[in-house]
Design a protein around this nucleic acid. Sequence first.
DNA 1: GCCGTTTTCGGCCCGACTGTTTTCAGTCG
Length: 590
Amino acid sequence: MSLNTDLSALFATMADIMDIKGENTFKVLAFRKVGRILADLSFDVRECVKNNTLCEIEGIGPSSQRIIEEYVATGRSSDADSLAQSVPATLLPLLQVEGLGPKTISLLWKERKITNADELKAALEDGSLKGIKTIGDKKLAAIKQGLANRAKSAGRIGIGHALPVAEMFVDLIRKLPGVTHAQYAGSLRRGRETIGDIDIICSVKDPSLSQKIADAFVAFPAVARIIGQGPSKSSIVTASGLQVDLRILPEENFGAALLYFTGSKDHNVKIRGLALKKKMTLNEWGLYNLAEYEKTEKKIAEAPPLKPVASRTEEEIYAKLGLDFIPPELREDRGEIDAALNHKLPRLITQKDLRGDLHSHTTASDGKNSILEMAQAAKALGYEYLAITDHSKSSVIANGLTPDRLIKHIAEIRKAQDKIKGITLLAGSEVDILPDGRLDYEEAILKELDIVIASPHASLKQDAAKANDRMRRAVETRYVNIIGHPTGRLIGGREGLPLDFPPLFKLAAANGTAMEINAGYPRLDLDEFNSRSACEAGVMISIDTDAHSTAELCEIHFGLTVARRAALTAKHVLNCQSLNDLREFLRRKR
DNA sequence: GCCGTTTTCGGCCCGACTGTTTTCAGTCG
């Protein structure tokens, strides 16, 4: 899929260059959008070129089509090349500097021949930037600060790291006097696997308290630096470099603000356009009648003084736009708005739909709890079944089981079953997929198990040919029910196997082999895009915690989020099936 | 550059905050 990524980066770079050159903003936005579309594509863009279906993708027009086709054919784009010659490439990273935008960068380049961060730093030191119109002393100080902060900035961080920070802030804000609601929004609420910053919305009964709440927020102990502070919007940075934005609004505007700051940006643009078509306007304060809104005097940081069509809840606003409620995880402008208009949104999977967990470990290998303790914890979650799947012998570090130990372990699982009622224990194994695709146990052993997960743990830097052969062989192997964390990636740490998924999914569907969404952070493997295409190929998905303790058994949330972002419903998910249906599925590989 | 059940031309989401300024431009989300 790296061609998609390359092309996505190409369009993003072209947009940056055009931005600095001061080209039409909407043209820049159009290119940025194409970049995002390409990054989000769940299939290889070459397919579209081959089938001549590029222009069927909304947002890709004739110009983008020409660039993509040229790039696919030749590995280059003449448009991108000539753009690249018009601006020093070393200017582009300056766009990442807080406080520096395209206009200022262009001005620094034209007025003072600044072409990179080092020259900028030097010029700030020697005072040669003084005297440029519209750039005063404060602006220069802000640029200096921005350059200094760049090294400390966290960049995008994993959802697993961002969520606890967000929950801490939300808890603190809820306890402030006068706050009626507080909720995190943004990409965190949409459940993206990485988060740029944390957006928090809070509502107040009495708007005169807003300033006090903002003051309290920027004074929290976790705050390392204040970026901005006004009566309705404040931004801070934590010691770890994570930005947190707080919006404070009257209670009756809470839904509109939550909707607006949950995004995504593309989703917002689309529904605002929809509002305009219906002679209404939508902003973070509410949905308003357009004619009335335009006649009204507005004040900065105050709700417009007219009665909104809807504003208190997201549900009301969607309803007034003629849309079914769109769950945050789907708000990415990937067709969800049309689906909501036509009442065709999927009923996304929820925790209640899950009937069991098919991937867990005990003290027999590298887990922290006994079989019985894990079973009791699973029962407490309301599960009907739990698969005990300890490691196989090659996972030496994880104390993997030799065949002899596995046979005894199966007997232990049966014994534990006798001691607990109300939950069914499946005797399983998480068997290593060896580098050549063979499994770590012989078939004679595998057939003694109720369920087999096969996972790659070692040799995760194989080339594509070897990796695909390896996984194909595993998918086809008799007794293998689920492929666990198929790529072996770690978010922010390890790329994982370079798998070509479409043919693999086809094979998995034909063989009745399920694919796992491993809920453990930072795995989340399969990711949302591959989960979606697996499901479209007819592959069953298993959402599992890979729990190594009773506490981890509760951490199914992130896996469910991936599944929801992939638009999965209960019928796509193996562990939403009744025990009988699950057993029938498992039996087909025997 | 993209798009169209009012439009193939003329729109394109909208507001808060900051800084450099007296009415607005740039940046950010």
